[in-house]
Amino acid sequence: MEKHLFLAGHTACYGCGEALGARLVVDAAGPNIITTDATGCLEVFSSRWPQSAWAVPFVHSLFENSAAVASGVEAALKALGRQVEAKVIAQGGDGGTADIGLQCLSGMFERGHDILYVCYDNEAYMNTGVQRSGLTPYGSNTCTSPSGKVSWGNRYLKKDMPAIAAAHGVPYIATASVAYPKDVQAKVKKALSITGPKYIQVHVPCPLGWKSDPALTIKVAKLAVETGLYPIYEMENGVVTKVRKIPRPAKPVTEYLKLQGRFAHLFKKGGGEGEVKKIQQIADENIKKYGLLSEAAAKVAVEAEKE
Protein backbone atom coordinates (compact mmCIF):
# COMPACT_ATOMS: atom_id res chain seq x y z
CA MET A 1 0.00 0.00 0.00
CA GLU A 2 1.02 3.58 -0.52
CA LYS A 3 2.38 5.37 2.50
CA HIS A 4 -0.19 7.60 4.19
CA LEU A 5 -0.12 9.51 7.46
CA PHE A 6 -3.73 8.63 8.19
CA LEU A 7 -3.97 4.90 7.91
CA ALA A 8 -6.39 2.17 6.96
CA GLY A 9 -8.02 0.12 9.68
CA HIS A 10 -9.96 3.11 11.00
CA THR A 11 -13.60 2.31 11.61
CA ALA A 12 -15.39 4.99 9.59
CA CYS A 13 -18.55 4.02 7.71
CA TYR A 14 -18.55 2.95 4.08
CA GLY A 15 -17.91 5.91 1.81
CA CYS A 16 -17.03 8.31 4.63
CA GLY A 17 -16.12 11.75 3.32
CA GLU A 18 -14.51 12.79 6.58
CA ALA A 19 -12.01 9.88 6.57
CA LEU A 20 -11.03 10.92 3.06
CA GLY A 21 -10.80 14.57 4.08
CA ALA A 22 -8.59 13.84 7.08
CA ARG A 23 -6.21 11.74 5.00
CA LEU A 24 -5.94 14.41 2.31
CA VAL A 25 -5.18 17.06 4.94
CA VAL A 26 -2.45 15.19 6.85
CA ASP A 27 -0.89 13.77 3.68
CA ALA A 28 -0.61 17.30 2.29
CA ALA A 29 0.78 18.64 5.56
CA GLY A 30 3.49 16.00 5.80
CA PRO A 31 4.99 14.18 8.78
CA ASN A 32 6.24 17.21 10.75
CA ILE A 33 2.93 18.16 12.33
CA ILE A 34 1.16 17.85 15.65
CA THR A 35 -2.59 17.47 15.38
CA THR A 36 -5.42 17.91 17.84
CA ASP A 37 -9.00 16.85 17.29
CA ALA A 38 -12.25 17.69 19.01
CA THR A 39 -14.60 14.90 19.98
CA GLY A 40 -16.61 13.73 17.02
CA CYS A 41 -16.74 11.10 14.32
CA LEU A 42 -13.14 11.64 13.29
CA GLU A 43 -11.79 11.11 16.78
CA VAL A 44 -14.04 8.11 17.43
CA PHE A 45 -13.21 6.17 14.29
CA SER A 46 -9.51 7.07 14.16
CA SER A 47 -8.44 6.62 17.77
CA ARG A 48 -10.25 3.63 19.17
CA TRP A 49 -8.10 2.89 22.19
CA PRO A 50 -5.61 1.17 22.24
CA GLN A 51 -5.24 1.80 18.51
CA SER A 52 -4.58 4.88 16.46
CA ALA A 53 -4.94 5.47 12.74
CA TRP A 54 -2.60 8.45 12.92
CA ALA A 55 1.05 8.21 11.99
CA VAL A 56 1.61 11.73 13.37
CA PRO A 57 1.30 13.00 16.97
CA PHE A 58 -2.40 13.30 17.75
CA VAL A 59 -4.17 14.71 20.80
CA HIS A 60 -7.83 14.10 21.41
CA SER A 61 -9.11 17.13 23.29
CA LEU A 62 -12.60 17.59 24.69
CA PHE A 63 -15.49 18.55 22.44
CA GLU A 64 -15.05 22.29 22.88
CA ASN A 65 -11.33 22.85 23.16
CA SER A 66 -9.49 21.51 20.12
CA ALA A 67 -8.37 25.07 19.31
CA ALA A 68 -7.34 25.75 22.92
CA VAL A 69 -5.29 22.53 23.19
CA ALA A 70 -3.62 23.34 19.88
CA SER A 71 -2.89 26.84 21.22
CA GLY A 72 -1.12 25.23 24.17
CA VAL A 73 0.87 22.94 21.91
CA GLU A 74 1.93 25.88 19.76
CA ALA A 75 2.83 28.00 22.80
CA ALA A 76 4.90 25.14 24.22
CA LEU A 77 6.78 24.72 20.94
CA LYS A 78 7.52 28.43 20.98
CA ALA A 79 8.66 28.40 24.60
CA LEU A 80 11.02 25.54 23.85
CA GLY A 81 12.27 27.32 20.75
CA ARG A 82 11.23 24.36 18.62
CA GLN A 83 8.51 25.93 16.49
CA VAL A 84 10.46 25.24 13.29
CA GLU A 85 10.28 21.51 13.98
CA ALA A 86 6.53 21.05 13.73
CA LYS A 87 3.39 22.79 12.47
CA VAL A 88 0.23 22.56 14.52
CA ILE A 89 -3.08 21.52 12.99
CA ALA A 90 -6.28 21.69 15.03
CA GLN A 91 -9.24 19.74 13.72
CA GLY A 92 -12.90 19.53 14.49
CA GLY A 93 -16.23 18.60 13.02
CA ASP A 94 -18.85 21.21 12.21
CA GLY A 95 -20.43 20.97 15.68
CA GLY A 96 -17.07 21.09 17.45
CA THR A 97 -16.19 24.15 15.37
CA ALA A 98 -19.28 26.27 14.83
CA ASP A 99 -21.22 25.54 18.02
CA ILE A 100 -19.42 23.91 20.93
CA GLY A 101 -15.86 24.91 20.08
CA LEU A 102 -16.58 28.40 18.79
CA GLN A 103 -15.33 30.29 21.83
CA CYS A 104 -12.02 28.40 21.96
CA LEU A 105 -11.63 28.90 18.23
CA SER A 106 -12.34 32.61 18.63
CA GLY A 107 -9.67 32.77 21.34
CA MET A 108 -7.17 31.04 19.09
CA PHE A 109 -7.84 33.55 16.30
CA GLU A 110 -7.72 36.47 18.71
CA ARG A 111 -4.34 35.48 20.20
CA GLY A 112 -2.94 34.95 16.73
CA HIS A 113 -1.48 31.47 17.26
CA ASP A 114 0.36 29.96 14.34
CA ILE A 115 -2.16 27.15 13.85
CA LEU A 116 -4.13 25.77 10.94
CA TYR A 117 -7.68 24.97 12.02
CA VAL A 118 -9.46 22.48 9.77
CA CYS A 119 -13.21 22.08 10.09
CA TYR A 120 -14.63 18.91 8.53
CA ASP A 121 -18.12 20.05 7.69
CA ASN A 122 -20.56 17.13 7.40
CA GLU A 123 -23.44 19.39 8.37
CA ALA A 124 -24.70 17.78 11.60
CA TYR A 125 -23.60 15.93 14.74
CA MET A 126 -23.20 12.59 12.98
CA ASN A 127 -21.30 10.84 15.76
CA THR A 128 -24.19 11.07 18.23
CA GLY A 129 -26.92 10.21 15.73
CA VAL A 130 -27.50 13.16 13.40
CA GLN A 131 -28.57 16.17 15.45
CA ARG A 132 -28.60 19.58 13.79
CA SER A 133 -25.61 21.87 14.24
CA GLY A 134 -24.92 25.48 13.31
CA LEU A 135 -23.69 24.31 9.93
CA THR A 136 -26.72 22.15 9.05
CA PRO A 137 -28.25 23.54 5.86
CA TYR A 138 -31.79 24.84 5.56
CA GLY A 139 -34.48 22.19 5.12
CA SER A 140 -32.36 19.26 6.27
CA ASN A 141 -34.13 16.52 8.23
CA THR A 142 -32.17 15.66 11.39
CA CYS A 143 -33.39 14.11 14.62
CA THR A 144 -33.50 17.49 16.38
CA SER A 145 -35.04 19.23 13.38
CA PRO A 146 -37.35 16.46 12.16
CA SER A 147 -39.64 16.92 9.20
CA GLY A 148 -43.28 16.20 9.91
CA LYS A 149 -46.81 17.56 9.67
CA VAL A 150 -45.83 21.11 10.58
CA SER A 151 -42.07 21.07 10.04
CA TRP A 152 -39.90 21.18 6.94
CA GLY A 153 -36.75 20.18 8.77
CA ASN A 154 -34.03 22.59 9.86
CA ARG A 155 -35.38 26.13 9.63
CA TYR A 156 -32.14 28.01 10.27
CA LEU A 157 -29.56 29.00 7.72
CA LYS A 158 -26.01 27.66 7.70
CA LYS A 159 -23.71 29.74 9.87
CA ASP A 160 -21.17 31.67 7.80
CA MET A 161 -18.06 30.41 9.60
CA PRO A 162 -15.51 31.84 7.10
CA ALA A 163 -17.03 35.29 7.67
CA ILE A 164 -16.77 34.81 11.45
CA ALA A 165 -13.09 33.88 11.01
CA ALA A 166 -12.59 36.87 8.69
CA ALA A 167 -14.06 39.18 11.32
CA HIS A 168 -11.18 38.12 13.61
CA GLY A 169 -8.67 39.33 11.03
CA VAL A 170 -7.46 35.82 10.17
CA PRO A 171 -4.91 36.11 7.32
CA TYR A 172 -5.94 32.98 5.41
CA ILE A 173 -9.39 31.42 5.13
CA ALA A 174 -10.55 28.85 2.62
CA THR A 175 -13.45 26.55 1.89
CA ALA A 176 -12.87 23.28 0.06
CA SER A 177 -14.62 20.05 -0.82
CA VAL A 178 -13.44 16.45 -0.94
CA ALA A 179 -14.86 16.35 -4.47
CA TYR A 180 -11.72 18.28 -5.45
CA PRO A 181 -8.90 16.48 -3.58
CA LYS A 182 -6.05 18.37 -5.23
CA ASP A 183 -7.67 21.66 -4.29
CA VAL A 184 -7.93 20.56 -0.62
CA GLN A 185 -4.25 19.61 -0.55
CA ALA A 186 -3.09 22.78 -2.29
CA LYS A 187 -5.01 24.87 0.23
CA VAL A 188 -3.52 23.01 3.19
CA LYS A 189 -0.01 23.53 1.80
CA LYS A 190 -0.65 27.20 1.14
CA ALA A 191 -2.12 27.69 4.62
CA LEU A 192 0.88 26.08 6.30
CA SER A 193 3.22 28.46 4.46
CA ILE A 194 1.51 31.43 6.12
CA THR A 195 2.30 32.46 9.70
CA GLY A 196 -0.63 33.11 12.04
CA PRO A 197 -4.05 31.54 12.47
CA LYS A 198 -5.60 29.88 9.41
CA TYR A 199 -9.04 28.42 8.85
CA ILE A 200 -10.07 25.83 6.26
CA GLN A 201 -13.56 24.39 6.04
CA VAL A 202 -13.80 21.13 4.10
CA HIS A 203 -17.18 19.89 2.91
CA VAL A 204 -17.32 16.15 3.64
CA PRO A 205 -20.43 14.11 2.76
CA CYS A 206 -21.75 11.67 5.36
CA PRO A 207 -23.67 8.82 3.72
CA LEU A 208 -25.17 7.81 7.07
CA GLY A 209 -26.50 11.21 8.08
CA TRP A 210 -27.34 12.47 4.62
CA LYS A 211 -28.93 9.13 3.72
CA SER A 212 -27.09 9.05 0.42
CA ASP A 213 -25.48 6.15 -1.43
CA PRO A 214 -21.94 5.62 -0.03
CA ALA A 215 -20.62 5.07 -3.57
CA LEU A 216 -21.87 8.54 -4.56
CA THR A 217 -19.99 10.49 -1.87
CA ILE A 218 -17.87 12.35 -4.42
CA LYS A 219 -20.80 12.95 -6.77
CA VAL A 220 -22.90 14.44 -3.97
CA ALA A 221 -20.02 16.67 -2.85
CA LYS A 222 -19.48 17.82 -6.43
CA LEU A 223 -23.15 18.66 -6.88
CA ALA A 224 -23.12 20.78 -3.71
CA VAL A 225 -20.45 22.90 -5.37
CA GLU A 226 -21.92 22.89 -8.87
CA THR A 227 -25.35 24.00 -7.70
CA GLY A 228 -23.84 26.93 -5.80
CA LEU A 229 -24.90 25.65 -2.37
CA TYR A 230 -21.30 25.22 -1.23
CA PRO A 231 -19.14 27.99 -2.67
CA ILE A 232 -15.41 27.19 -2.80
CA TYR A 233 -13.22 30.21 -2.30
CA GLU A 234 -10.11 31.61 -0.63
CA MET A 235 -9.98 34.71 1.51
CA GLU A 236 -6.74 36.50 2.25
CA ASN A 237 -6.71 39.30 4.81
CA GLY A 238 -10.48 39.57 4.67
CA VAL A 239 -10.80 39.79 0.89
CA VAL A 240 -12.04 36.98 -1.36
CA THR A 241 -9.09 36.37 -3.66
CA LYS A 242 -9.95 33.18 -5.49
CA VAL A 243 -13.23 31.50 -6.36
CA ARG A 244 -13.80 28.07 -7.85
CA LYS A 245 -15.98 28.77 -10.88
CA ILE A 246 -18.85 26.45 -11.70
CA PRO A 247 -20.07 25.47 -15.17
CA ARG A 248 -22.73 27.71 -16.66
CA PRO A 249 -25.65 27.29 -16.32
CA ALA A 250 -25.52 26.22 -12.67
CA LYS A 251 -27.27 22.94 -11.96
CA PRO A 252 -30.66 23.15 -10.23
CA VAL A 253 -30.52 22.35 -6.50
CA THR A 254 -33.08 19.56 -6.96
CA GLU A 255 -30.32 17.50 -8.59
CA TYR A 256 -28.34 17.71 -5.32
CA LEU A 257 -31.31 17.38 -2.96
CA LYS A 258 -32.83 14.30 -4.63
CA LEU A 259 -29.73 12.20 -4.00
CA GLN A 260 -30.14 12.56 -0.25
CA GLY A 261 -32.71 11.10 2.12
CA ARG A 262 -32.33 14.04 4.50
CA PHE A 263 -34.18 16.18 1.92
CA ALA A 264 -36.65 13.47 0.80
CA HIS A 265 -39.57 15.09 2.64
CA LEU A 266 -39.33 18.11 0.31
CA PHE A 267 -40.43 15.90 -2.59
CA LYS A 268 -42.89 13.60 -0.81
CA LYS A 269 -45.10 16.05 1.02
CA GLY A 270 -47.40 18.50 -0.78
CA GLY A 271 -46.10 22.06 -0.67
CA GLY A 272 -42.45 21.07 -0.73
CA GLU A 273 -41.88 23.10 -3.89
CA GLY A 274 -41.88 26.31 -1.87
CA GLU A 275 -39.09 25.00 0.36
CA VAL A 276 -37.06 23.81 -2.64
CA LYS A 277 -37.50 27.30 -4.08
CA LYS A 278 -36.05 28.79 -0.87
CA ILE A 279 -33.02 26.48 -1.13
CA GLN A 280 -32.62 27.46 -4.79
CA GLN A 281 -32.66 31.06 -3.64
CA ILE A 282 -29.78 30.36 -1.20
CA ALA A 283 -27.78 28.88 -4.10
CA ASP A 284 -28.61 31.84 -6.36
CA GLU A 285 -27.51 34.28 -3.67
CA ASN A 286 -24.19 32.44 -3.29
CA ILE A 287 -23.65 32.51 -7.05
CA LYS A 288 -24.25 36.24 -7.08
CA LYS A 289 -22.26 37.01 -3.92
CA TYR A 290 -19.11 35.12 -4.94
CA GLY A 291 -19.48 35.43 -8.72
CA LEU A 292 -19.39 31.65 -9.12
CA LEU A 293 -20.51 31.37 -12.74
CA SER A 294 -17.65 31.04 -15.14
CA GLU A 295 -17.12 33.30 -18.14
CA ALA A 296 -15.97 30.58 -20.47
CA ALA A 297 -18.46 27.91 -19.55
CA ALA A 298 -17.32 25.07 -21.72
CA LYS A 299 -13.64 25.26 -20.83
CA VAL A 300 -14.23 25.14 -17.08
CA ALA A 301 -16.66 22.26 -17.46
CA VAL A 302 -13.98 20.26 -19.23
CA GLU A 303 -11.38 21.14 -16.56
CA ALA A 304 -13.74 20.20 -13.77
CA GLU A 305 -14.36 16.87 -15.44
CA LYS A 306 -10.63 16.17 -15.58
CA GLU A 307 -10.17 16.76 -11.87
Binding site: H10, S47, W49, S52, A53, W54, A55, V56, F58
Partner: peptide, 14 residues
Protein backbone atom coordinates in the same frame (compact mmCIF):
# COMPACT_ATOMS: atom_id res chain seq x y z
CA UNK B 1 -3.47 6.30 30.54
CA UNK B 2 -5.30 6.85 27.27
CA UNK B 3 -2.20 6.65 25.14
CA UNK B 4 -1.98 4.73 21.91
CA UNK B 5 0.95 3.95 19.67
CA UNK B 6 0.85 5.61 16.24
CA UNK B 7 -0.25 3.68 13.17
CA UNK B 8 -1.68 0.77 15.15
CA UNK B 9 -5.10 0.75 13.47
CA UNK B 10 -3.53 -1.37 10.73
CA UNK B 11 -4.29 -4.37 12.96
CA UNK B 12 -8.01 -3.89 12.24
CA UNK B 13 -9.39 -6.17 9.59
CA UNK B 14 -12.03 -3.79 8.22
Amino acid sequence: GGLAQPATSLANNT
